[in-house]
């Protein structure tokens, strides 16, 4: 690195210890990297806006009553497209349902799907990525082919086909089905990221040293590799959470994910879209909430990544 570049970097306020190119050399280093990242994160307004949005959406999911006391399923065509009144600040939709109440209650499906799908893809991605990265060889080759196959079909398309099949027989709450679909199809990026982190960490001196001292693969992976590989993994999963929420809404929009009487932003957007010429407000409210939620997770992931990898700024 020339002095000029050095100067340019320091101009960006990057402390030398946060230099990502040096790679994680020790646990102490990792700690300071984490501390540095947290320092950067606290100074990033995007992080705070995103976090606030996430808290808001989670609150709506856990306790919708805090926001709207109206029953989202108490609909009557008498109030079709009626304007705002009382608690129904966004008025009523085609079926005469309280748009605001439905929007607030719609958060639960999104959050549930997002969180559980991310947990599932996280576990699958972690295990596959670690195994492929740590052991390499034929295991890596096989897992890489599996990743290729899953990635060979666009997520949404695969999700449509799979949801259709899984929900063909059963009726009722589709949340579990959607979670399973996204879990089966969505783990590839997480696995890839974990795999390359593991490969990078595996060649580090301290890992070799630990191995020489007789530590078993499980212990090495858990104690030495995982802590260093965690940051990019968390970033990918945070962004995936946003993507999964969008995919759930899309599947529901297509009448394949959640179906009425379930309450989902995707369903409401689809219904409102059909009657958009009569009234646009029922379309806007769930659209805005869905966008903000997806955006919040993507921004959060971006902010974390920037904090850990200042070069990308």
């Amino acid at each position: 690195m020339s002095d000029l570049e050095m100067a340019a970097t320091s101009e960006l306020g990057v402390r030398p210890s946060a230099d990502p190119s040096a790679g994680p050399a020790s646990t102490a280093r990792t700690r300071s990297l984490t501390a540095d990242a947290w320092y950067d994160l606290r100074r990033n307004w995007i992080f705070w806006v995103a976090s606030a949005l996430v808290v808001l959406v989670v609150l709506m999911a856990v306790a919708p009553g805090l926001f709207s006391s109206a029953d989202p399923t108490a609909c009557t065509t008498r109030r079709q497209f009626a304007g705002p009144s009382g608690g129904a600040i966004f008025g009523y939709d085609f079926q005469g349902c309280d748009v605001f109440s439905r929007t607030v209650h719609g958060a639960r499906a999104s959050v549930l799907v997002g969180v559980f799908a991310v947990l599932m893809t996280g576990v699958i991605g972690l295990v596959f990525g670690m195994l492929a990265g740590y052991f390499g060889g034929w295991l890596d080759a096989v897992l890489s082919r599996v990743v290729d196959v899953v990635l060979g079909i666009p997520l949404l398309l695969a999700a449509i086909v799979l949801s259709k099949r899984l929900s063909a027989d059963q009726q009722g709450s589709g949340i579990a089905t959607v979670v399973i679909v996204l879990g089966i199809l969505g783990w590839t990026t997480a696995a890839r990221v974990m795999r390359s982190s593991v490969i990078a960490a595996r060649s580090q001196d301290y890992v070799a040293a630990a191995r020489m001292l007789g530590a078993g693969p499980l212990r090495i992976m858990w104690r030495h590799i995982l802590p260093n590989a965690l940051a990019p993994f968390i970033v990918v999963l945070t962004i995936a959470l946003g993507t999964f929420i969008a995919t759930e809404a899309t599947l529901s929009f297509l009448n394949i994910g959640l179906r009425p009487p379930a309450i989902s932003w995707g369903i409401d957007i689809a219904t409102a879209g059909k009657h958009v010429r009569e009234s646009a407000t029922p379309l806007v409210a769930p659209s805005v909430f869905l966008t903000l939620t997806v955006l919040a997770f993507i921004m959060l992931g971006d902010a974390i990544r920037d904090a850990f990898d200042p070069k990308l700024r």
Partner: peptide
Amino acid sequence: TLVVVGLPIIVLAPIAQLVFGV
């Protein structure tokens, strides 16, 4: 771009149709 990245196509498509088409 941040907003657009977060904008699901099921939101963008009907709204674009509403605004620029209708």
